[in-house]
Simulated assay, not measured.
Amino acid sequence: MIRSLYVRITATFLIIVLISIGVAFLFTNQLFKRDARGQLPDQLHKSIDRIEQMYAVSEPTSMKQFLEEMSSLQGLSIIAVNSSNRLVEVGERSGTMVESLTYEQLTRVFRGGRVRLDLLDQEEGEPASPPAVGRLVKFGNENWVLFVQPNRFPQNSNFIWTAVTLLVNLLVVGCILILVAARYLVRPLKMMTDAATRMTEGDFTVRLPVRCGDELGEQAESMNRMALGLSRLEMIRQDFVSNVSHEIQSPLTSIGGFAEALRSEEVTNAERDRYVSIIKQESTRLSRLSENLLNLASLDSQQHPFHPKLYRLDRQLRDVVLSCEPHWLTKRQTV
């Protein structure tokens, strides 16, 4: 398992470079083979033109000797046939051309057409040698059918075109692969951004998948722990608000109940004094609750010293019973 994001990026880059070089080489190789084979027939026809021109200039006495010289100079295998069915063949591949040439092809060339011979390997069915082309030429006052074939495929010597094509293919393939790899590497970052946005909106249930142990995996795990901690804090906050609301509501209810009781004309002076005392006690309780909330805020900020004190539970219970007296009196309950 690759545990470092730096290693992943470096490995991804090297893989992209290697794949790009391989694809670019294969594409360039096929392109040049196609161009070379596509241009070869035109080059062979130009060779035939040169042979015809050389014959007209030199006017040789021996056709075979002339064709042998042309074959040696241009690296060609040549067969020539005149209207009297005289055959002259020179070159290392001339015998193969004679065996492949048919009467129909020869007749077509005598009528002014052009013929291309694709010599195939009979066992594998693939081209075993370069193609041959034939057409009608005039040597002196006599018409000849001339077929020429290079002894081997010509080598491409255009280094600049080769280099440019290779680099362009390398650039194109590399750009496509780096876009795909970048999408794969950036996806976890986008998921973290979406998760952070949801947490800022108050959704602490979001969780990120941890699929690897690199820096991105550690970051995802940290965000999951943060979301869990914030979720727990939110539950504590909600419980705290609920408890504080209840603690505030209880003395307010008592104050409201005793204040309503003081409006009654049947209340004696002793009861009135007791009710006033309870209202004051509940007001003091509210004040103390407010002070406790401030102290709690100070404790959270770690700027207030903590001094624990002892409290008597019986007094707390008695105060609760007295503060709730209006309620249990209204319901005719006995404590």
Rank of each mutant, 00 (worst) to 15 (best):
R3A: 12
L5V: 11
V7L: 15
V7I: 15
I9T: 13
F13H: 12
L18W: 04
I21G: 01
I21L: 11
A24T: 02
F25I: 05
T28E: 12
N29T: 15
N29F: 12
L31T: 10
A36E: 15
P41G: 09
D42R: 12
K46S: 01
S47R: 03
I48K: 01
E52H: 01
E52D: 05
Q53W: 03
S58A: 03
L67F: 07
M70P: 08
Q74M: 11
G75Q: 04
G75I: 04
I79R: 01
S83V: 06
S84P: 02
S84F: 08
N85S: 11
L87E: 15
R93E: 15
G95C: 03
T96H: 04
T96Q: 14
M97I: 11
T102H: 02
R108M: 10
G113M: 04
D118T: 09
L119H: 08
P127Y: 00
P130A: 00
P130V: 00
P131R: 01
V133N: 05
K138G: 00
E142C: 01
P154G: 06
N158G: 05
W161H: 08
V164Q: 04
L166Q: 09
L167R: 02
L167V: 12
N169R: 00
V172L: 07
C175V: 13
C175F: 10
L177T: 13
V180N: 02
V186W: 13
M191V: 07
D194E: 12
A196G: 03
A196H: 02
E201V: 04
L208R: 07
P209T: 05
D214G: 05
E215A: 02
L216M: 13
Q219W: 05
S222C: 03
M223R: 10
M226H: 08
G229W: 06
Q238G: 07
F240Q: 04
F240K: 01
S242F: 07
I248Q: 11
Q249S: 14
S254E: 09
E260A: 14
R263I: 15
S264R: 11
S264G: 06
N269G: 12
N269F: 07
E271M: 00
D273T: 09
R274S: 05
S277V: 04
K280N: 01
E282S: 14
E282H: 06
R288W: 03
L296G: 12
L296V: 09
A297Q: 13
D300I: 10
S301E: 08
P305Q: 07
H307K: 10
L310H: 10
L310A: 13
R315N: 04
Q316E: 09
V320I: 08
E325Q: 14
E325I: 05
W328T: 09
Q333V: 08
T334G: 02
